[in-house]
Design a protein around this nucleic acid. Structure first.
Lengths: 145, 145
DNA sequence: CCTCAATTGAAAACCGTTTTCAACTTAAAG
DNA sequence: CTTTAAGTTGAAAACGGTTTTCAATTGAGG
């Protein structure tokens, strides 16, 4: 989803929910979209402060929750104890490769794995709603090259 | 691994590390082994208190960490914000199915998925060290039967 | 403009986890 | 069986990320 489309979606969301469009929300969305994905609240907050020192952590936190609520962002946890947010391409699911050395996060998608998941779950009487697959290892920059 | 073998392993661990065998540690290990797996620290602590009200949360916490360190338990996070521990069958890996309705946790293993994971990771230049696969959905007790 | 509800930021509360510290155990030495 | 040194315990405090509170501010419709 393009930047403009995402911003429109957020504005629509605000309107339909009776929420207000504010300067902070615009700044946060802009920074969220142009900064790399998978930023933590803290990281995004620090980036924003560089440009606008008057912005508060609580506002960043609340705004990220709004993003998630309206479907333009998704919250993730990669085991380092803090929540991270990634821009959501909506209905296009992907999983993650995480380098344990440098922290790099790569997204991937594999329909064959998804298919097997459904099969395995079915075998146990489960209907899958969502899943989480994270592969932790070493990327080529860190461990081979 | 049987109960006795696990207890021996823990005692060996204590010896080789210069740690002491204490009444609390025995109680906690016994309860950990006979209570169902995937208990949180809090849950195990509450169970232990019923039998021995003088036991402290900190001790349960520290002892579970020891279990993990010595390889008889593994810490897991299933997204509800608290750490859970499961008895470890060592080198036999498995993943989890979690019922979003009743919280039931089922373990499974599928070599085909593992194989694909290695393949996909390799395609991105990664060498997998470990992974996490959790399927969240509805079990047959909750959503169908 | 005015008004009122929504929003903001600083600070406090929260919640699971981890550490501190003085009292207490353990195990090995005497 | 002491004694002793080191490890352990539990209550309480500290921690760290998250979430809420609240008084002051801002946005948008009347």
């Amino acid at each position: 989803m393009g930047k403009v489309k995402t911003k429109n979606k957020f504005n629509d969301f605000l309107l339909t929910q009776g929420l207000k469009s504010t300067n902070q929300r615009e700044l946060i969305l802009e920074e969220f979209l142009c900064a790399g994905s998978h930023l933590s609240t803290e990281e995004l907050y620090l980036r924003l402060r560089r440009k606008n020192p008057r912005i508060g952590y609580a506002t960043v936190h609340r705004t990220l929750k709004l993003f998630a609520e309206c479907g333009i962002a998704e919250q993730r946890h990669f085991g380092d104890g803090q929540a991270r947010y990634e821009a959501s391409d909506h209905d296009e699911h992907h999983d993650h490769l995480i380098c344990v050395a440098c922290g790099k996060i790569v997204e991937f998608e594999d329909p064959r794995i998804e298919e097997l998941q459904v099969e395995v779950a079915g075998g146990h009487g489960f209907t899958i709603e969502r899943h989480r697959l994270e592969l932790y290892g070493c990327c080529s920059d860190c461990c081979q090259g």
